[in-house]
């Protein structure tokens, strides 16, 4: 069991390394000279060469990747050219391990950018996952056990509507009506817990999280419904009824236990995906999370930041995968003892 977890972690690290390698290769495929971009509009070839050297872009691809990976472990100092650092010690930026790079565009280390943006995205994702899981599973179960009735059709119909509208429409709709026209909620603006306390944090987060949750909620209702129906038609449910168990026990103890297991996988992966940034929701609500950071970095050709975001998002996905697999072993004895 623990050997399995350790093996998965090692594989995860290898995957992350591969991820950096691939993003680095894409980096070099991009038709943009980072040094020219960093140097400014009125740069001559010589200045560009100096900038290239200062940022380490004069080195070959694999050397740059090696230096990046070493930076993650040991930290780095910018500019990368030691001569330049010695000549102008006042411009040296210390990027401590795990150093994910330096964004010339923002004049900050990627680590700083990520630590500013990640809490916004994590807050959003956590609240969204709570909302969609709670309501999605609840409505899905209700729908399954009233299969074919008005309640079932109503729930399925409503989720279809929620599913059909794109996130940006729902987000703009909520902003325009719930916030601006009806004034039911204040205009949401991200407030860290440290600044405004849990109440302000939650109040501001509710609308964006709910928007984000809505699309997932729709699919979770339908999937929960399908899993519960499938589980309730299993032979072991007939056995449970044949024992004379109460209907409630049959449903909750025997039916849901098996039905909700696949949801663990789905939730883990969806949640991991969101942690990499909810681009549309963050954009519409102007939340400075990882999604916004990605969009800004892409617009500015800020490749070091993009690599940083990709790496963090990838790490979340790999981590959640490991967590899901281990959770499965706890839930399903066939995995644990098979």
């Amino acid at each position: 069991m623990w050997a399995y977890a350790a093996r998965r972690c090692v594989i995860g690290v290898v995957l992350l390394l591969t991820l950096t390698l691939v993003t680095f290769m894409l980096f070099f495929a991009a038709p943009v000279n980072q040094a020219r971009l960093a140097c400014g509009k009125i740069c001559n070839e010589q200045q560009i060469a100096v900038t290239e050297k200062a940022l380490g872009y004069d080195k070959p691809f694999y050397a740059q990747w090696g230096s990046f990976v070493r930076g993650v472990v040991e930290g780095r100092k910018y500019p990368l050219d030691p001569e330049l650092r010695a000549a102008a010690p006042e411009i040296v930026t210390d990027c401590t391990a795990p150093c994910l790079g330096y964004s010339q565009f923002n004049a900050k280390t990627v680590n700083e950018l990520l630590t500013e943006a990640a809490p916004v995205t994590i807050s959003l994702a956590v609240l969204a996952v709570v909302i969609w899981l709670f309501f999605g599973v609840l409505l899905g179960i209700m729908s399954a056990i009233t299969k074919g009735s008005i309640i079932d059709r109503g729930i399925v119909g409503l989720t279809l509507i929620a599913f059909a509208f794109p996130t940006f429409f729902i987000a703009v709709f909520f902003l325009k009506y719930v916030v601006v026209k009806w004034g039911l909620l204040a205009y949401p603006a991200y407030t860290p817990i440290a600044e405004g306390g849990v109440g302000a944090w939650f109040g501001n987060l509710f609308l964006p999280s709910f928007t984000l949750a809505l699309v997932f909620l729709a699919s979770y209702v339908r999937i929960t419904r399908a899993f519960v129906l499938e589980s309730l038609s299993e032979d072991y449910i007939r056995t449970a009824r044949a024992k004379g168990l109460k209907g409630r026990t049959v449903l909750f103890k025997h039916g849901l236990r098996a039905a909700l297991t696949p949801l663990v996988t789905m939730t883990g992966l969806d949640f991991a995906g969101l942690l990499g940034g909810a681009i549309i929701t963050e954009r519409v609500f102007a939340y400075p999370g990882l999604g916004s950071l990605t969009v800004d970095a892409s617009n500015a050709w800020d490749l070091p930041t993009i690599i940083g975001v990709v790496l963090v998002a990838g790490a979340f996905v790999i981590l959640m995968n490991i967590i899901v697999d281990i959770a499965y072993a706890f839930i399903d004895p066939r995995v644990r003892l098979g």
Partner: peptide, 9 residues
């Protein structure tokens, strides 16, 4: 079929 008639968990 006792394998499917018993709850796997």
């Amino acid at each position: 079929d006792p394998l499917s008639a018993m709850h796997p968990y």
